[in-house]
Write a protein that binds this DNA or RNA. Structure first.
Lengths: 205, 205
DNA sequence: TCTATTTTTAACAGAATTGTTAAAATACAT
DNA sequence: ATGTATTTTAACAATTCTGTTAAAAATAGA
């Protein structure tokens, strides 16, 4: 057995599986479509990953493992200004979401809500770093204090996530091609960084 | 045949179908689950709607028909101030999204992209009213002119849509119950209306 | 009560899909 | 060249789901 070959085969399968699961979801995905995409035989899928469920679990877990660390960066580099930290976060997050489907995670969580709690136990403690960080900024009068940090969290994440998962609909509504939409999105992180910074500075109470 | 009975049975089926399709998607939905929810026999589903596909189409079309009119209100009541218009839109949109799943539409559109174009032909012309309206506001120096109206469109829709479709994840990340999240959301339209108005007023170039 | 309609029951056919298996073919390393 | 691991082929069992049907039962309305 050649480790190289085996790895690349396994990776080819995982890559194909990821694409199919992302666009069709667990229920709509077909093992046949995955093996076609990976350019291998369907029986080989079962040779590598026994069942569809196990293969899906692998894809889902890996997606979540890539995703969660992004959310817990708010207590790093504390000497950095909050403006810079925010801007970096937005750029990193949006770049990430361009190649990692948030909609995939969301769809599967709604299909099977226990996926969320069971798969994120070890990360959960890190998830409220954002709120703590922004509460501190407010105490130190660095940002406005009249907006609940939870709202700020929701606003930032909505602005980052939705434009990428809703690209098809937005480009359709705005009557631009998906290429034009991608070009529009290239300038988007800059725009919302600036807007959010303006907003958070505004009217310090 | 009693029209009353027949209608309420059909409605019971549609209501059940809607719930199941919304949480499981077309592929994950089971006719058995729908009939169980509607508390009727599975054979009766086929008596009312011949096939699963036809039933789904009905649900999808109705969801889209409820959704699209919301997007084309920007040329009504032109004497109203843009601030009030924006606020009204946000409240109406968010209220709507509390009982109408945007994620459902999005998931099915991604599964089968042609659904979008084929089902919205008659509405499409109305979809760019927003951009026209905001371009006019900019020309008249009523709002800042340094942000592309397409960005404004994306920002407003992201702020309205995502918090509702991502509720499960947000309440989990913020470590609050879904009840607390709902309470938080009660104040949300007011917050983002004010923030958006501040933003759009800011620095008129 | 009688009739027409709605609903249930139960059984079934057909299709699609997953997962298994055994054997053959292929690739590869030593 | 030999032996081992990988991959293909092809066939199949088992399950699940959709959709159909016919007959019986229940229900509502005249």
């Amino acid at each position: 057995m050649n480790v190289e070959t085996s790895l690349s085969t396994e990776e080819a399968i995982l890559e194909a599986a990821r694409k199919v699961f992302e666009s069709k979801g667990f229920d709509g995905a077909r093992m046949q479509e995955i093996s076609d995409r990976a350019r291998i035989n369907r029986a080989l899928l079962h040779y590598y990953f026994r069942t569809k469920a196990k293969m899906f679990e692998r894809i889902f877990d890996e997606a979540l493992e890539r995703f969660l660390p992004l959310l817990s960066t708010w207590d790093q580099d504390l000497e950095e200004s909050w403006e810079l930290k925010l801007k970096r976060f937005i750029i990193k997050f949006i770049t990430f979401l361009k190649t990692n489907s948030m909609l995939f995670l969301l769809r599967e969580i709604i299909r099977k809500p226990e996926l969320l709690a069971s798969k994120t136990e070890k990360h959960r403690k890190r998830l409220n770093k954002f709120v703590r960080y922004f509460d501190r900024l407010k105490q130190e009068r660095l940002i406005r204090s009249d907006v609940d940090s939870k709202y700020i969290y929701i606003i930032i994440h909505s602005l980052c996530s939705f434009p990428l998962m809703n690209g098809i609909v937005f480009s359709y509504s705005l009557r631009i091609s998906s290429k034009e939409y991608d070009e529009l999105m290239a300038g988007y992180p800059e725009i919302i960084s600036d807007l959010l910074i303006q907003l958070l500075k505004y009217q310090k109470n």
